[in-house]
Nucleic acid binder design. Structure first.
Length: 1021
RNA sequence: GGGCGUAUAGCUCAGUUGGUAGAGCAUCAGCCUUACAAGCUGGGGGUCACAGGUUCGAGCCCUGUUGCGCCCACCA
């Protein structure tokens, strides 16, 4: 008893004892520091979590929320490349995943955030080789095995560093289940997949054109190719005909009346007039056009035909300005014109083709023109001679040739150009490889053999010039393919590679994947990415999975010479017998990471690959969080391979994040220097601030603009919450060592109100979190914490804990319970977003919950003891809302009345307030409440608000009248609008509840207006 | 050329079944108010890109136009 007394005393005495010395800073009953210092506390808090075992998938599930048979929440987190460090994009993804993980853990679900690192084939090999070279090491002296082992160690080292960064961010991953993509436990499953694909006939080996990086000596995938604009030259080379070709002759006639002849460049012309020019029509000489003229394509110019469209129909380049202008004029003149593309052609000297890579001509096996090109219609099928190498090849027609580019003739080099390779396949052309994998000219290049490609280019041009076969050389800016990692120019060439057939007739991998996707088994956030996903999947082409690298999984393929024959076996283990040697190619890194969704779970025993069963239900995992930029190469492939191996989707939902940009929406890059290092931000503002900065207001799929200003702004929130805790500790919770029991009956309107508010927000936040609307949830919590909780509830707490308050122990107990309940709930809800700060507060304020750490705490249920939803409870909540409205109205009025000071007298003409309510109105509104009659008529000023009228005891009535009449006008307008609406079809057609709402609004507005008018009348007297 | 997105306050962005537009920052006015001046109170500011359509009613749905952006392919 005495103890209890003491507690009550000290709770309020601390404030009152210092009453005398105002300038002296009072001794606060707090252990809280002035500010939360993230850098000092974060690592200790993380250790606390790790020690608690809460991050483990095996952690016991909190029993507070009922059944323990809840589905697990599993994310196999995308493994970052183990060759560097984390960037802001990683922080973003991790923030989302960790927030989801912590949220679901708090819903009493078993949670597995499975971490990992990717070996990242070519990227790592390039990074690692550069490092070795930087130390002066000669790589040729090392064996493949040596390099592999050293690189493995290097990756382990980087992985450790990155793991530390992940922990710094607060990532609540299950570190016991962390994997590296080259881990043998995973690799075996990867190899198995390959073997099965092979057995199913879905793997083939073939000579294909690939992107070849000479520097790294490997083929690289399309997605690892960047394009860079460089200045180059376009060389026009003449290929003489093998035997003379004659052009057809046409008779000459005049241009039709009113026609215009316009040059479109490249020997092409456009005639614009009222009638079409036909093939039989030939333009007269003297107009700059030679005699042999062929006409083709015509396009009508009507009112709604855009000039650009006509130009493209005619295959005229947009740059043909003169033509464009003329066409515009014709369109403006009302249309009805016809534009006809015509051409001149002089075939005697052979065909001219343009190229940026003259050296590849040595491998030409055809020339190609567009089948509709008027200039070359008659030469299709003719033979031309490839100069220098003196090879006779045919002219073919293919609609992939663009009429408008260069001379409209393409030299076809199937071995060294992707388009040419395709054209070659269509037309059955031979493939002649003149550039080797070492970047030097091959045997096929004849006299040029052994030259480097660049050198050969110069020699070829010089030799052609000597023969007079170079028409002209233009400078052009064009994009050349360069290797994303090694930065050298890609040389497309033919090489033997391993492929996965993705659309096999018997067993279509992409077909099955597409089925699963379209079955709706995967929730996609944002939803519109489904279309894009399908689009990519549909357009997937056979997948080259081999790389000529030493870093990665070596293909489980074995060779040996057997009596002069090459024997090939595909198996995980070395086949029995002697003389087997393993394929040297390694897998494309996406082949292994494409199986991440099940290899990881299999490796940690959560998935049985034989039966496909996951005992604890970890597969398929709940969610995948992925940057939208890798949808194509990762999401597609993961779905493809998981569908194949498991006949199941890899995840139940996929969340695509946008990209992180700088504050001006620019891409972050080292060269621009606008990048943000997550480590620096954490050092400066703390992990919580970074997380909030990244998550606030984000929506799936949309890019996030990030600047330091945004983070420093949100770091204010951390201070705010810290101070809220400090206040509660000082005012009411400082003496609570454990949770206060809920009172049997709650008398305080404020207590019911805040608890009800918290429950309402919790329901809403749950909904938002369950539907992956993290940004919305955070924003909701932020607003609630700041506006409702701090600016109203804590102010209320201050009033109710003032020393002048009656020492009512029951009331105090009630207050403490409400404070603990509401603040504990708030911390629980904020914890997924701000884990460190909330945990620190939780640790410092005992009694906020029963779990040893907030990270393990399940969200508390709505209090059963308090039936705030009952009729009486609802009234109580209403009562507090009324108090708030009154105070707001008073404050607002005071400002508009010219800043009435504090302590003025105010009377309320509304429903009576409770004792507590009156006290709150007086304290928070800084007024003295009196009865209406006590305010003398000549000093009364009335302010109408939604619930009634406030009478102010104030002499200045004149200025106020203007304001009142303004309000009246706006009310009248509002009423008019509402009445008009209710008189319209609206009343009959809209939903009844909507109509009712509008009626209610009208009634309130009318009542308010009538009160307002009365007050105005009174003022006028 | 193919696919997709986006346009809302001065800036950065929310706005999920269609019901009279929101936040943060910035700005203006007023506050030392014993948790926080990294704070508090109040205010101003928007024909929701443009043009049509569906609907009683459109920021939201449909069509078209324009600007910006992303991804893929491509410039021989």
């Amino acid at each position: 008893m005495a103890q209890k007394e003491n507690r009550n005393e000290s709770g309020k005495d601390d404030c009152s004892t210092e009453e005398g010395g105002r300038e002296k800073k009072p001794e606060l009953n707090t252990t809280f520091a002035d500010h939360f210092e993230p850098s000092e506390r974060e690592s200790a808090l993380y250790q606390l979590w790790e020690k608690s075992g809460a991050f483990s998938f095996d952690a016991p599930v909190s029993e507070e929320s009922g059944s323990s048979t809840k589905d697990p929440f599993v994310i196999c987190m995308p493994p970052p490349n183990a060759n560097g460090e984390l960037h802001l994009g990683h922080s973003y993804g991790y923030s989302i995943m960790d927030t989801l993980g912590r949220y679901h853990r708090a819903q009493a679900r078993p949670v597995l955030l499975l971490p990992g690192k990717d070996h990242a084939g070519i990227q790592t090999q390039v990074v690692f080789e550069n490092r070795l070279r930087a130390t002066g090491r000669d790589l040729s002296t090392s064996t493949r095995e040596q390099l592999y082992d050293e690189c493995y160690a290097f990756c382990m080292d980087r992985a450790q560093y990155m793991r530390a960064q992940e922990k710094q961010l607060g990532l609540s991953a299950d570190w016991e289940r962390e994997f590296f993509t080259l881990d043998p436990r995973l690799s075996n499953v990867v190899f198995e997949t390959f073997v099965r694909l092979w057995d199913d006939g879905l793997i083939y080996r073939g000579k294909r054109i690939v992107n070849w990086s000479v520097l790294s000596g490997t083929a690289i995938s399309d997605v690892e190719v960047d394009r860079k604009e460089v200045e180059g030259t376009l060389t026009y080379i003449r290929y003489p005909f093998a035997s003379p070709v004659t052009a057809p002759k046409f008779k000459e006639i005049d241009l039709p009346e009113g026609s215009q002849l316009l040059s479109a460049g490249g020997g092409l012309w456009v005639v614009v007039g009222r009638q079409e020019i036909t093939a039989a029509t030939v333009l007269r000489q003297g107009e700059g056009v030679d005699s042999s003229l062929i006409c083709v394509e015509a396009a009508k110019l009507s009112k709604d035909s855009a000039v650009k469209k006509v130009l493209s129909e005619l295959s005229v380049p947009d740059e043909a300005l003169q033509v464009a202008q003329a066409l515009s004029q014709c369109v403006a003149a009302g249309g009805g014109f016809i534009a006809t593309l015509v051409a001149q052609f002089d075939p005697s000297e052979g065909l001219v083709t343009a190229t940026t890579r003259p050296e590849t001509m040595l491998g030409d096996t055809a020339l190609a023109v567009h089948p509709k090109d008027p200039r070359y219609a008659h030469v299709v099928g003719a033979a031309v001679v490839v100069p220098l190498i003196e090879r006779e090849v045919k002219v073919i027609a293919d609609n992939r040739v663009e009429i408008a580019f260069g001379a409209g003739v393409v030299k076809v080099t199937p071995a060294h150009d992707f388009l040419d390779f395709d054209i070659g396949e269509t037309h059955g052309l031979p493939v002649i490889q003149v550039i080797g994998t070492d970047g030097r000219m091959t045997e096929e290049a004849g006299a040029y053999k052994g030259l480097e490609a660049r050198e050969c280019r110069k020699r070829v041009v010089a030799d052609l010039e000597a023969k007079g076969l170079v028409e002209k050389i233009e400078k052009i800016v064009h994009k050349v393919p360069i290797a994303e990692r090694s930065k050298d120019i890609i040389e497309p060439l033919i090489s033997e590679q391993w492929f996965v057939a993705v659309d096999d007739k018997k067993h279509s991998l992409k077909g099955r994947a597409l089925e699963l996707l379209q079955s709706g088994k995967i929730d996609i956030h944002p939803p519109h990415f489904r279309k894009e996903f399908e689009h990519w999947l549909k357009n997937l082409r056979d997948w080259n999975i081999s790389r000529q690298l030493w870093w990665g999984h070596r293909l489980p393929v074995w060779y040996r010479d057997q009596a002069g024959e090459m024997e090939t076996k595909v198996s995980i283990e070395v086949p029995s017998g002697d003389g087997w040697r393993q394929e040297t190619d390694t897998f494309d890194t996406w082949f292994s990471s494409g199986q991440w969704a099940f290899t990881t779970l299999a490796a940690c025993g959560e998935l049985d690959m034989q039966t496909g069963k996951a005992a604890k239900g970890a597969f398929p995992s709940e969610c995948m969080v992925m940057g939208r930029d890798i949808l194509f190469f990762w999401a597609c492939r993961m779905l493809l391979l998981t569908a194949y191996r498991m006949d199941e989707v890899p995840w139940k939902s996929i969340y695509f994040t946008g990209l992180i940009r700088d504050e001006h929406g620019q891409k972050m890059s080292k060269s621009k220097g606008n990048g943000i290092e997550p480590g620096e931000i954490i050092k400066k503002f703390g992990s919580d601030a970074l997380r909030v900065g990244l998550l606030f207001g984000t929506t799936p799929g949309n890019d996030v603009n990030m600047g330091e200003g945004k983070i420093s702004g949100y770091s204010k929130f951390i201070n705010k919450l810290w101070n809220a805790a400090k206040l509660l500790q000082m005012r009411t919770l400082g003496d609570c060592q454990s949770a206060c029991p809920p009172p049997a009956q709650i008398r305080s309107d404020a207590a019911v109100w805040i608890v009800a508010e918290v429950c309402r927000v919790r329901a809403h936040v749950r909904h938002l979190m369950d539907t992956y609307q993290l940004g919305q949830a955070l924003s909701e919590l932020y607003g609630f914490t700041w506006d409702t909780y701090c600016d109203w509830y804590l102010e209320v707490v201050k009033v109710l804990t003032k020393e002048s308050a009656s020492p009512d122990t029951a009331a105090l107990a009630e207050l403490r319970w409400a404070a603990q309940y509401s603040f504990g709930s708030l911390l629980e809800m904020l914890h997924p977003f701000l884990p460190f700060l909330t945990e620190e507060i939780y640790q410092q304020l005992p009694g906020l919950g029963t779990a040893p750490t907030l990270c393990q705490a399940a969200w508390r249920p709505d209090p059963k003891q308090v039936s705030f939803e009952s009729a009486s409870g609802q009234r109580s909540t209403d009562a507090m809302v009324r108090v708030i409205e009154v105070v707001k109205a008073i404050r607002s009025s005071k400002v508009s009345l010219g800043g009435l000071g504090s302590g003025i007298r105010v009377a309320l003409n509304t429903d009576p307030l409770s004792e507590e309510g009156e006290r709150l109105v007086q304290e928070l509104g800084r007024v003295q409440l009196v009865k209406p009659a006590e305010i003398s008529a000549d000093r009364a000023v009335a302010q109408v608000f939604a619930r009634g009228v406030i009478l102010f005891d104030h002499p200045d009535r004149a200025g106020f009248a203007t304001k009142l009449s303004k309000e009246a006008t706006s009310l009248e307008e509002n009423i008019e609008r509402l009445e008009k609406r209710l008189a319209s079809d609206f009343a009959a057609r809209a939903k009844p509840e909507v109509v009712a709402v509008e009626r209610e609004k009208l009634q309130v507005a009318k009542q308010t207006l009538s009160r307002l008018s009365e007050e105005l009348k009174a003022l006028a007297r």
